[in-house]
Amino acid sequence: MRGYELCLIFHPDAGEDTIATILQNLNEQIKKHKGTVTNTEKWGKKFLKYTIKKQTKGIYYFLSYMGTSAILNEIDRLVKFNESILRYSTVRLDEDEAARRSEQANRTPAEEPEEISNPVTEEETAVQPKTTE
């Protein structure tokens, strides 16, 4: 078992549903091959440093997982010809890094998705009182 990190750059116009289904498919495939997803990171829409497929923006997702190299082929197959994905790359993590991430995943499995959604709502509520005063 080795640790890998998959970076996905989605098309800026890709809907949340399509992104969610792709991520779900990936998760399923990883589980199918006896791997475990240790961490998912969402960066959101960011400017690209150079244009990819005539796009200047992209939606970034990072998916780190433990697994065997058979998963890589499977991910290739899923991601390669998908038009809503601009670019993807898989990087092998060092053993220390992979161990750290799997530890983190074991500690807080449910908290991570909440952290992503919280800051947006907090900002909105913080702005409103100022305008009324």
């Binding site: 970076c7 750059i9 690209l48 440093k49 150079y50 990819i52 992209g58 970034y60 670019r87 790359s89 990087v91």
Partner: peptide, 11 residues
């Protein structure tokens, strides 16, 4: 070089 591939850094 990795950052360049995923367009975080410019070539």
């Amino acid at each position: 070089k990795r950052a360049r591939v995923i367009s975080i850094m410019p070539f």
